[in-house]
Design a protein around this nucleic acid. Structure first.
Length: 155
DNA sequence: GCCAACGTTGGC
DNA sequence: GCCAACGTTGGC
């Protein structure tokens, strides 16, 4: 099975790429995905896959580095935590609705790639991130797009 | 803060 | 099954 590539969005005010660098083992669980399409993509992730770490709701919004999937999808415990903003009262513990993966810090880009700059790239014309109205927080990235992004980042 | 795009909910 | 109302995401 060939390595797959992904893009993960995070609001830096909640959890930034630097926060991941400072996390124990430079690893975190990717909790809080509450969208079925995004969840289905989490389920397809394989250990060793890589993802672009993207800062949404930032100024400017930007791709800032890479992470590696180090644990494949497992139930997101926060869905059963009444105090969590990710609590989902209608999820059945016998058949958990929401999943998460673990990701590990990979490499920072030599420079952040802002959303406007990404939009200028012809090689990225069809990238999900750049589609009008795209809101998915977990997105597939083609190998071609992956290479184009890393080349642009000078990585 | 505004608002477009999208997903979900729930009445019918 | 339709669709209006509502909530969320996220760029600007």
């Amino acid at each position: 099975m060939a390595k797959q590539y992904w893009l993960l969005k995070s609001e830096p005010r909640s959890f930034s790429f630097d926060d991941l660098a400072r996390s124990p083992k430079r690893t975190t669980c990717w909790e809080g995905v509450r969208n079925y399409q995004a969840r289905n993509l989490l389920r397809e992730m394989k250990k060793g896959d890589e993802a672009i770490f993207y800062h949404s709701n930032a100024s400017p919004p930007a791709a800032v580095g890479t992470v590696t999937i180090v644990r494949e999808a497992y139930p997101d415990a926060y869905q059963f935590d009444r105090k969590s903003r990710y609590h989902d009262a209608s999820s059945d513990p016998e058949n958990p609705r929401w999943l998460m993966v673990d990701v590990q810090y990979g490499a920072p880009f030599a420079r952040a790639l802002s959303l406007p700059e990404l939009r200028e790239q012809r090689a990225l014309a069809k990238m999900e991130l750049l589609r009008k109205g795209s809101r998915l927080s977990v997105q597939p990235v083609t190998p071609k797009e992956w290479r184009a992004v890393l080349r642009l980042a000078g990585s």
